[in-house]
Design a protein around this nucleic acid. Structure first.
Lengths: 141, 141
DNA sequence: ATCAAGTCGCCACCCGATTGCAATAAGGGT
DNA sequence: ACCCTTATTGCAATCGGGTGGCGACTTGAT
């Protein structure tokens, strides 16, 4: 079905197979799409990239599975929509850019979220999420 | 109706009156609740604090109005729920803490979001949102 | 006191996400 | 290569935070 995702298929297959759990076509295809895209994708984006005849719920579950398996990141935007990005090369901790105009998300690999934060006593940080909002290069024209 | 919010009522009234637009009981009450709470509240939290007989939709609109008026901040959490905090003393740019266990949000006034970020060319930052996830002091016990 | 414009309250509705369950496919054991 | 167990998929229904529409009611300027 996804002739629009030619490459990354093998890479995705290798990554999925390396994880405990079954290696299904759906998981491989979805991961291939995420790998081929430089910015985080919404569930709807993934569904569109897969083409017709794919069940929404399955994609939800596959994306969650990929997230649990550590192969993808899940991030929440202001529009109450989940975005997913492949975890692959990108270091696990980086910031995101959210364009207020076109709504697109970008990964800002250069910006680390490894901040030396000082929390109130008793608080323990497990993860830091940084989202920069503004206008992307495309929308500035 | 809100005998549970004794103080802050006058302060809230003063703040609402200082803004262009009508000074309604609903706006004053909701702002008083936000002022009386040290951490951001969800729409449901506010509704519960107001007591019975208050319309959901009105609270949604009041919260949006307060946000537009600059009297409250609106922030998105992982659970796809808006949280609102009084803008009052708190500097406009600060980080938030999200407890993964109890789901509560805290304002981290000490941590500024005035970072010297370097964006790809053409990108313009308008706002930076930092959310630190982990376990709060209460849940660590 | 009057009255137009701004708000409130109730209705139904939107849409992303989730749950339940039967049908199907993956892959280990033989 | 086949079978059988079990995880995954597909479909339908549902959930739940949030929104739009519109008549009734306040607000506050006149």
């Amino acid at each position: 079905m996804p002739q629009s995702v030619p490459d990354r298929q093998e890479e995705a297959h290798r990554l999925v197979a390396a994880v405990a759990g079954r290696t299904t076509a759906m998981r491989v295809n979805v991961l291939a799409i995420l790998l081929a895209t430089p910015h985080p994708l919404s569930h709807l984006d993934v569904l569109a990239a897969l083409g017709e005849g794919v069940d929404r719920v399955t994609v939800y579950r596959v994306l969650d599975w990929l997230t649990d398996a550590g192969l993808a990141h899940k991030l929440a935007g202001d529009d109450r929509v989940w975005r997913f990005a492949a975890a692959h090369s990108t270091p696990h901790h980086h910031a995101h850019f959210h364009c207020q105009h076109c709504g697109r998300f970008y990964c800002l690999d250069q910006i680390s979220t490894e901040l030396p934060v000082v929390l109130p006593s008793g608080f323990v940080a497990e993860q830091i999420e940084i989202t920069i909002k503004g206008a992307c290069a495309d929308c500035r024209r």
